[in-house]
Protein backbone atom coordinates (compact mmCIF):
# COMPACT_ATOMS: atom_id res chain seq x y z
CA UNK A 1 0.00 0.00 0.00
CA UNK A 2 1.35 3.45 -0.86
CA UNK A 3 1.53 6.26 1.63
CA UNK A 4 1.93 3.91 4.55
CA UNK A 5 3.03 5.60 7.72
CA UNK A 6 4.69 3.80 10.60
CA UNK A 7 4.41 5.08 14.15
CA UNK A 8 6.70 4.04 16.96
CA UNK A 9 4.78 3.31 20.14
CA UNK A 10 6.52 2.52 23.41
CA UNK A 11 5.57 -1.12 24.11
CA UNK A 12 3.65 -1.73 27.33
CA UNK A 13 3.59 -4.92 29.39
CA UNK A 14 0.86 -6.57 27.31
CA UNK A 15 2.72 -5.96 24.05
CA UNK A 16 5.91 -7.45 25.46
CA UNK A 17 4.00 -10.46 26.85
CA UNK A 18 2.27 -10.92 23.47
CA UNK A 19 5.64 -11.01 21.68
CA UNK A 20 7.24 -13.32 24.22
CA UNK A 21 4.38 -15.82 23.93
CA UNK A 22 5.41 -16.14 20.27
CA UNK A 23 9.17 -16.20 20.86
CA UNK A 24 8.82 -18.88 23.54
CA UNK A 25 6.47 -20.79 21.23
CA UNK A 26 9.26 -21.02 18.64
CA UNK A 27 11.72 -22.21 21.30
CA UNK A 28 9.27 -24.65 22.88
CA UNK A 29 8.36 -26.53 19.71
CA UNK A 30 11.79 -28.23 19.49
CA UNK A 31 12.41 -28.22 23.28
CA UNK A 32 9.07 -29.59 24.49
CA UNK A 33 8.42 -31.89 21.53
CA UNK A 34 11.81 -33.55 21.70
CA UNK A 35 11.50 -33.98 25.47
CA UNK A 36 8.05 -35.52 25.08
CA UNK A 37 8.97 -37.83 22.18
CA UNK A 38 12.06 -39.04 24.03
CA UNK A 39 10.59 -39.49 27.52
CA UNK A 40 6.92 -40.34 26.88
CA UNK A 41 7.07 -42.15 23.55
CA UNK A 42 10.52 -43.74 23.11
CA UNK A 43 11.71 -44.38 26.68
CA UNK A 44 8.30 -44.61 28.34
CA UNK A 45 7.24 -44.29 31.95
CA UNK A 46 7.99 -47.96 32.71
CA UNK A 47 11.71 -47.41 32.26
CA UNK A 48 11.85 -44.18 34.26
CA UNK A 49 12.87 -44.30 37.93
CA UNK A 50 15.30 -42.54 40.31
CA UNK A 51 18.21 -44.37 38.75
CA UNK A 52 17.19 -43.26 35.25
CA UNK A 53 16.98 -39.61 36.31
CA UNK A 54 20.36 -39.85 38.03
CA UNK A 55 22.06 -41.29 34.95
CA UNK A 56 20.36 -38.71 32.72
CA UNK A 57 21.33 -35.77 34.90
CA UNK A 58 24.90 -37.03 35.25
CA UNK A 59 25.37 -35.27 31.92
CA UNK A 60 25.13 -31.54 32.68
CA UNK A 61 23.88 -30.81 29.14
CA UNK A 62 20.55 -32.43 30.05
CA UNK A 63 20.29 -30.22 33.12
CA UNK A 64 20.80 -27.10 30.98
CA UNK A 65 18.22 -28.45 28.52
CA UNK A 66 15.71 -29.15 31.30
CA UNK A 67 16.36 -25.76 32.86
CA UNK A 68 15.49 -23.93 29.63
CA UNK A 69 12.49 -26.17 29.08
CA UNK A 70 11.26 -25.45 32.61
CA UNK A 71 11.80 -21.69 32.30
CA UNK A 72 10.16 -21.30 28.88
CA UNK A 73 7.33 -23.82 29.29
CA UNK A 74 6.12 -22.76 32.71
CA UNK A 75 6.31 -19.01 32.03
CA UNK A 76 4.50 -19.54 28.70
CA UNK A 77 1.87 -21.67 30.41
CA UNK A 78 1.19 -19.37 33.34
CA UNK A 79 0.97 -16.32 31.07
CA UNK A 80 -1.46 -18.29 28.91
CA UNK A 81 -3.54 -19.06 31.99
CA UNK A 82 -3.44 -15.34 32.84
CA UNK A 83 -4.75 -14.48 29.36
CA UNK A 84 -7.60 -16.98 29.74
CA UNK A 85 -8.51 -15.80 33.25
CA UNK A 86 -8.51 -12.13 32.25
CA UNK A 87 -11.19 -12.95 29.70
CA UNK A 88 -13.51 -13.75 32.59
CA UNK A 89 -12.34 -11.43 35.35
CA UNK A 90 -13.28 -7.83 34.69
CA UNK A 91 -13.13 -6.03 38.02
CA UNK A 92 -9.89 -4.14 38.51
CA UNK A 93 -9.51 -5.34 42.09
CA UNK A 94 -9.97 -9.02 41.23
CA UNK A 95 -7.52 -8.69 38.33
CA UNK A 96 -4.81 -7.36 40.63
CA UNK A 97 -5.35 -10.18 43.14
CA UNK A 98 -5.34 -12.86 40.44
CA UNK A 99 -2.20 -11.37 38.84
CA UNK A 100 -0.35 -11.47 42.16
CA UNK A 101 -1.57 -15.00 42.78
CA UNK A 102 -0.30 -16.12 39.37
CA UNK A 103 3.05 -14.40 39.93
CA UNK A 104 3.54 -16.23 43.24
CA UNK A 105 2.38 -19.53 41.69
CA UNK A 106 4.81 -19.08 38.79
CA UNK A 107 7.71 -18.15 41.06
CA UNK A 108 7.17 -20.95 43.62
CA UNK A 109 6.78 -23.78 41.08
CA UNK A 110 9.66 -22.47 38.94
CA UNK A 111 11.94 -22.34 41.99
CA UNK A 112 10.93 -25.85 43.10
CA UNK A 113 11.80 -27.14 39.63
CA UNK A 114 15.05 -25.17 39.43
CA UNK A 115 16.21 -26.38 42.85
CA UNK A 116 15.59 -29.99 41.84
CA UNK A 117 17.55 -29.58 38.58
CA UNK A 118 20.48 -28.00 40.42
CA UNK A 119 20.30 -30.32 43.44
CA UNK A 120 19.91 -33.51 41.38
CA UNK A 121 18.85 -36.94 42.58
CA UNK A 122 19.36 -37.77 46.26
CA UNK A 123 19.46 -41.55 46.37
CA UNK A 124 17.80 -42.90 49.53
CA UNK A 125 20.37 -44.82 51.58
CA UNK A 126 19.27 -48.43 51.76
Amino acid sequence: MSGQRSVKIKPNYEVIAWKWMRYTAIALIPLAWFHMILQDVLVGVHRIDLNYVQVRWAFWGWRVYDFFLLAFAFAHGVNGLRQVLMDYIHSEKARIWVSWGLLVFWLVISLIGAFAIIGGVRMPSS
Partner: peptide, 22 residues
Protein backbone atom coordinates in the same frame (compact mmCIF):
# COMPACT_ATOMS: atom_id res chain seq x y z
CA UNK B 1 -2.94 -25.35 26.55
CA UNK B 2 -4.73 -25.48 29.88
CA UNK B 3 -4.55 -29.28 29.95
CA UNK B 4 -0.83 -29.20 29.26
CA UNK B 5 -0.27 -26.57 31.98
CA UNK B 6 -2.18 -28.72 34.49
CA UNK B 7 0.04 -31.69 33.68
CA UNK B 8 3.19 -29.55 33.57
CA UNK B 9 2.55 -28.20 37.08
CA UNK B 10 2.09 -31.72 38.50
CA UNK B 11 5.09 -32.92 36.49
CA UNK B 12 7.44 -30.22 37.84
CA UNK B 13 6.40 -31.02 41.41
CA UNK B 14 6.67 -34.82 41.04
CA UNK B 15 10.05 -34.56 39.30
CA UNK B 16 11.30 -32.28 42.08
CA UNK B 17 10.71 -35.22 44.46
CA UNK B 18 14.01 -36.68 43.19
CA UNK B 19 15.67 -33.99 45.29
CA UNK B 20 13.13 -33.07 47.99
CA UNK B 21 11.55 -36.49 48.71
CA UNK B 22 13.28 -39.29 46.73
Amino acid sequence: GLGTLLFLTIHIVDTSFVYFAP
